[in-house]
Design a protein around this nucleic acid. Sequence first.
DNA 1: ATAATTTGTCTATTGATATAGACAATTATA
DNA 2: TATAATTGTCTATATCAATAGACAAATTAT
Lengths: 248, 248
Amino acid sequence: MSGLAGSIERRNGVSLWRQIADRILQGIASGDFAENAALPSEVLLAERYGVNRHTVRSAIAALVQEGVLRAEQGRGTFVLSRRRLSYPIGARTRFSTGLQGQTTERHIALLSSSTEPANRRIAEALGIAKGSTVIRLETRGEADGHPVSRATTWFDAKRFAGIEAAMVETGSVTASLRRFGINDYLRQSTVLSARHADADDLADLGLQPGAIVLVTVAVNVTLDGQPIQFAESRFSAERVELRLLASE
Amino acid sequence: MSGLAGSIERRNGVSLWRQIADRILQGIASGDFAENAALPSEVLLAERYGVNRHTVRSAIAALVQEGVLRAEQGRGTFVLSRRRLSYPIGARTRFSTGLQGQTTERHIALLSSSTEPANRRIAEALGIAKGSTVIRLETRGEADGHPVSRATTWFDAKRFAGIEAAMVETGSVTASLRRFGINDYLRQSTVLSARHADADDLADLGLQPGAIVLVTVAVNVTLDGQPIQFAESRFSAERVELRLLASE
DNA sequence: ATAATTTGTCTATTGATATAGACAATTATA
DNA sequence: TATAATTGTCTATATCAATAGACAAATTAT
């Protein structure tokens, strides 16, 4: 696929067992370690990564804890099946429709809502005056009962008063916006980055410390270009990949 | 911007000093710590993160080593200016033109080239038979002398024989393809993910262990839809953000 | 000049991380 | 049934990570 082995680095602030656990996760994602099949034995992995068998055991123990592997004495250690969701991003990006075919159920849970004055960044994105009141929603996207994404979104409070109630009721941004007369909208811009998940995201997404999140910062607009929503979403890089739709 | 503090987690395989270094990097990116200004004092940071002053010092020492901060005895610790490049991705994504305005010089360096039989994934992407010979290029995108991205690209060897020489000469994929009669091409698909950089990427991109890379897997096609290039690129998440162009 | 603030260096202690070796327990195979 | 291969558990040791305290060195403010 991408590159060759590449060895483990010492004294970087990341423990060897965590690095090896990450490598195993990569191996599963890239297909080097097939799902439902046995991993190489602990002795073999220790040789391959150039560490002690006990260090490999620590990595495996962590992944067993995370539900990625299952170890069976005398038989081996097995990769549990759990594929990464592929989340499409394009002009008509919507959470609920994006994961159709890959999941049977999905909705957006509203964790909290509040109003606050818009800072410069939000005001510019929404095309309103700095300091205007905006509604801030903290949401979590869920599919088949598992958390997929964690988002913070802002709406102009003047235009979308009461949208938090609509979100609770419908569990969908698209459905909520329809109540405000918006039947269609487009994604105007998306900026993408990645970082380690902070403590809040770890808790909300049920991730282990050290996990990586993909971060999108997006602006949605009406068909005539009026900004209506500003959002920052965090996706677990372990569980989700973003598929950018061909643009024209 | 996104969330609130979120505290430091212990015994996760990631050392406290590395976590705090990451938090400081985040703070710089989000504007909480302004460029060229002094960071809060070590004592203050230790209080804020709930750790010992020496732990904060370890984090700062790492960031000084990485060239992010500069510590001056008696004065304070200062944030060096280095903004993240914003790399646009859309139908006409090209390395050289994408960073115009943000950098003065950019080119692609060919690290190595080889031929190999196409595996299933590459063959499908390029629309050729599995096992056909493909040319594999290992390249590094550089801007103003600094490494920006690290890519592995594959071309059909039959159609693009000698493209490695063109790459060395021109330092550009677009210019090289022009020699094969291709004056324009489009990005058909892009799949995005993120992971910790492997040892090869660390070396080639000059990153510190534990760094995150954004990974794009893309297929470029001619205007009539014929696949010509399959590529996996890795961008340093510290130095680059991906700006997805509005699709229609 | 003096005091206050800040980074730099040193010693010491505790717990987590990593290595090493030996052997038990379980499973599959010859 | 015996053997090999695999995971599980134990002890021991060395190094890294983190805390704690004290004081030096450099800069800034009073």
